[in-house]
Simulated scan of single mutants.
Amino acid sequence: MEIRELQAKAAQIRMDLLTIIHRAKTGHTGGSLSNTDILTALYYRIMKVDPNNPKWENRDRFIASKGHSVESLWCILADLGFFPKEELKTYSGFGTRLIGHPNNKVPGIEMNTGALGHGLAISVGMAIAAKRDGRPYRVFCLMGDGEQAEGSVWEAAMAGAHYKLDNLIGIIDRNRLQISGTTEEVMGLEPLDEKWTAFGWNVVSIDGNDMAALVEAFEAIPAAAGKPTLIMANTVKGKGVSFAENAAKWHHHVPNDEELRKALEELDTQLQALRAEGTAI
């Protein structure tokens, strides 16, 4: 997909994830909205995956370490055909596969995740396996910024650099908000770029809601041979919905009927504008 197509797809995915959260009356809304652009760039432009063959040996691997923000991922996997779109209506319902964290009973999910701090270590192991087996796949791991307070993240970061895993890409959804407030109030992280650099990673800091910047950064990988890459994706929590942006309460706030209506209206306006721009070219 080209950049404008990716932007339009992200707007649609945001509409879908809000709809399933509203229907289920549960979900992590703010973080799913902030990570939508990242996941859209990965799944529709960057990663080599095959919905018709989810276990293809040379597929790129994606690990959602910040597994609580799964709604955007469910909507993308359904849109790509990993499972029927109709199944999205069961999200968080009794007996569903589509629970509130990634579940590897669902095609396209590599590992159950959600206990923060585990995803990068899993990704390091997968990247080592690819190197030892001589396989070309890459491993992408999406982490939250609040997750950086977990010590296991830094153990995995050390290992990734030690084993020179240039097929490993860490991504931090740096929206600066977590469940109980700002990340700097809860557990100060800055200078976060410098910390990852000191741990031996090639750090690329970008606007994580800028689709062109995301694509440029991902397509440049590996930017440094023999080094894992860390994409510091500076995002806005609640991105795309004006009254949810930069609001900590939207971490797991479920939109009511009126909020859903307003949010879908805003996103549809964005979507129609993008489509009109595309038609005019």
Rank of each mutant, 00 (worst) to 15 (best):
T40V: 13
R135N: 04
Y163D: 04
K25T: 01
E184H: 09
W56P: 00
E147L: 10
S123I: 07
I13R: 03
A233E: 08
L264I: 04
T19F: 14
Y91W: 13
F218D: 08
I231A: 01
D193P: 00
V124A: 10
W201C: 05
R135E: 12
D257E: 15
W74K: 06
G108L: 12
I109T: 09
L168A: 10
L42Y: 06
D37H: 05
H28Q: 05
E71H: 10
E155F: 01
D16P: 00
E258R: 15
H68A: 02
R135Y: 06
L98H: 15
W56F: 11
V70F: 13
N52K: 15
D268C: 00
Q7D: 11
G27T: 05
S123T: 07
L73G: 00
V254L: 04
R23S: 12
T29N: 04
A127R: 11
L267N: 02
E185K: 14
N103E: 05
R135I: 08
G100F: 10
A217Q: 03
E2R: 03
A247K: 07
R4D: 14
S242L: 05
A223N: 12
Q178F: 09
G117K: 07
W201R: 04
A247T: 00
G151I: 14
G208S: 11
M187N: 13
K249C: 02
A121M: 11
E2V: 01
W250V: 01
R174T: 07
Q12G: 01
G181K: 14
S69C: 10
M1N: 04
R132K: 15
L264G: 00
L17H: 12
V203E: 09
G30P: 02
A276R: 14
G144Q: 12
K239D: 01
I3F: 13
W250S: 01
P255W: 15
G134K: 06
G119A: 06
V49F: 03
G144K: 13
M111P: 00
A157L: 04
A157R: 08
H22D: 13
P51T: 06
N256Q: 04
Y91T: 11
L214R: 02
M126C: 00
L260M: 07
V139F: 03
V124E: 13
V186L: 14
G240T: 02
I206Y: 03
T40Y: 09
G93E: 10
H252W: 15
L177S: 10
S123N: 10
N246H: 13
D257N: 12
S92T: 13
W74D: 02
M126G: 00
Y44L: 05
M111W: 13
L274K: 12
N256D: 14
W250M: 03
I46L: 09
W56Q: 12
E147N: 09
P136G: 01
G30W: 12
M15T: 00
P102Q: 08
M232N: 08
A280R: 12
A244R: 11
L120D: 08
C141L: 10
P102L: 09
G238H: 05
M187Y: 14
I46S: 02
V186W: 14
K227W: 14
R132C: 07
G117Y: 12
W196M: 04
Y137A: 04
Q12Y: 11
